[in-house]
Write a protein that binds this DNA or RNA. Structure first.
Lengths: 179, 179
DNA sequence: ACGGACATGTAACACGTTACATGATTAA
DNA sequence: TTAATCATGTAACGTGTTACATGTCCGT
């Protein structure tokens, strides 16, 4: 699902400007998706050309014009069509995970620091998601709940199993300390 | 962490050809990373130019030459250097999750089918990971375990909460059936 | 006076995939 | 004979990010 389609989807829920769409990505959706202005504005222009959204320019005093986009019936159909396509496979990219794969090459302290940081990040994220769970429709709540469940499991795993990568490092430092 | 660095990392663990590296990505690492020949071969060539890996051509009878790459001391240093950089944020892209966000726009049956499929995929993946857990060093086991824990939580959540998105659909169809 | 929010956009760049090109060997 | 596995590579394309360009208003 590319940014263009995602924007179209957001516009099924409410009219918005490019700037506002960015805010939505930075808000509750932050832990699942993101998009920069560099992809949002061109996407919106393309959708307009294709007749899937309509743009109403609102002149504002003391501010640049605000371009508010709303989805057209054709846009709704196109989005539905997209949603009905079999979803492609998830893709994931985690430098933390990649780093942990090679934990045995790193100084023990560094590994511990990385895990500490990640644990803290998970905690913040879980708080965020808890809060986000309240607001929003069923679909959003479901997705937020899924994220929460998975990140909570990740956090718990880190806490219970960090010794696996820290231990190995300790072993190495213990054998050199035993000299 | 780009493909080039990932290849370098794999070469810290054993010498390999481009073809073999692809097999590794398709094997135990499948659920965490992937890479196509179109990025692996150029990466390997670039690493060679940079002096981070060395290439030994093995003439094979009845097969094209096999180019086996091994990491150089400079390569090890460069990889370590890379690993010591603070890891960038995770990025995630899931069409399933995106689709679920808009579950209320979809036919109830379709949503149920999607979840059924996802549940089945999780089951297969968990089996895979269970098996992969045994082999490999501490780092790999840790990462595989983390994946397992998170996907298991995802599966459980889906099973226990699918009614949230199926229920809403049912509600809509119930009210129209009550006419 | 300065940084941050509001507001829109473009161009260069990075990174990766897909499809193509080539060709032998082996098992069904 | 047909498909799969072994084996390497390139070129076109897609998709997105970063950095830049521009300008106002508001709070401190």
């Amino acid at each position: 699902m590319d940014i263009r389609t995602l924007c179209l989807g957001l516009l099924t829920q409410s009219d918005a400007s490019g700037y506002e769409i960015k805010k939505i990505f930075e808000g509750q959706l932050r832990h699942f998706f993101d998009a920069s202005y560099g992809s949002i504005y061109p996407a919106l222009n393309k959708l307009t050309e294709e007749g899937l959204v309509r743009c109403t320019e609102q002149a504002q005093d003391k501010r640049p014009d605000k371009k508010v986009y709303s989805i057209t019936p054709a846009g709704r159909m196109a989005f539905l069509d997209e949603l009905m396509q079999p979803p492609g496979r998830d893709r994931y990219r985690s430098e933390f995970v990649a780093t942990m794969m090679f934990a045995d090459l790193l100084p023990p302290r560094h590994v511990s620091d990385l895990i500490d940081k990640r644990v803290e990040e998970y905690r913040v994220m879980l708080d965020d998601l808890q809060r986000a769970c309240a607001e929003g429709d069923a679909g959003k709540a479901f997705v937020v709940g899924l994220g929460h469940a998975m990140y909570r499991a990740g956090l718990q795993y880190l806490e219970e199993n960090r010794h696996l990568v820290e231990g190995e490092a300790l072993l190495a430092s213990a054998s050199s300390a035993a000299d």
